[in-house]
Amino acid sequence: MAVVGTLGPRLDRERFQWSSLLMLAPGLVLLVVLFLGPVLYAFYIGFTNLALVGSRSRDYSFTGLENVARMLGDYVFIKSSWLTILFVVGSAIVGQSVLGMLLAILLRNAVVPIRIVVGSIVIVAWVLPEITVALIWYAFSQAGGTLSILLGHGGTNFLVLVPMLIVSVANLWRNVAFSMLVFSAGLRNLPSEVLEAAEVEGASAWRRYRSVILPLLRPTIVTNLLLVTILNLSEFTLIYAMTQGGPGIETTTLPIYVYQEAFVFHQLGYGTAISLVLVLIGAFFSLLFVRASRRQV
């Protein structure tokens, strides 16, 4: 309208007050010292040849892109990166989220006793310590273990035959409760009359899920994907306890490779550089999800 411009500055815009910096200073100092500092330092370490023992542990130096060049030529690193992405996409994003959603939907429509029994079992798997889960699945997939007998191949060690698959499924088995709980809460909070309106309007169950329930759950889905991706990207205990990254390097995901480089081979600089790649992968997925959530919400 014409009045804009003649009335002086807008009063409904957010304004910055310099005095607020003073109030924020203590928190800001803590953040810089305890958070930003270490992160930047780790970033720096990633471009050095720092070692855990030996002469390089004292007089290390900035080596520019040397670590990056080394990565690009490092067969183990390349394979490890693919394994990590496979693990995150397969076990976390597809497996855990889809299965978690299905469980949440099924339990929502189930009668109360079934809901309680199944819900409890799934949550118990999540409450179990990771080491215990590792042990259960280790025993389950050994030659002569339950899995081989069930499949009629008594002598096959499935942890050797398809190690990445077994590890992923074990991880999925443990973590599905998390997604299920997130989605159950999301489903419970949907406005019930909106769903009833869709039903009265003649929409089939399939259409109600596709056109109403899932779109309304979108924020929940994105939150779940973000959390699950970040949690699984750094998964170490379960895999290491089951396989130590083997056989060979068949289950050496990036966290395990970082551990080996930094603490077994004492290559702290290179190990840190690899963990920075892990951060990059995480940032990539996060960006993807956040962008997806922005679209037509």
Partner: peptide, 13 residues
């Protein structure tokens, strides 16, 4: 049947 809900119950998305 077609129903007008007291709370409207429009599809928010």
């Amino acid at each position: 049947v077609a129903m007008v809900f007291q709370s409207y119950a429009l599809y928010p998305h």
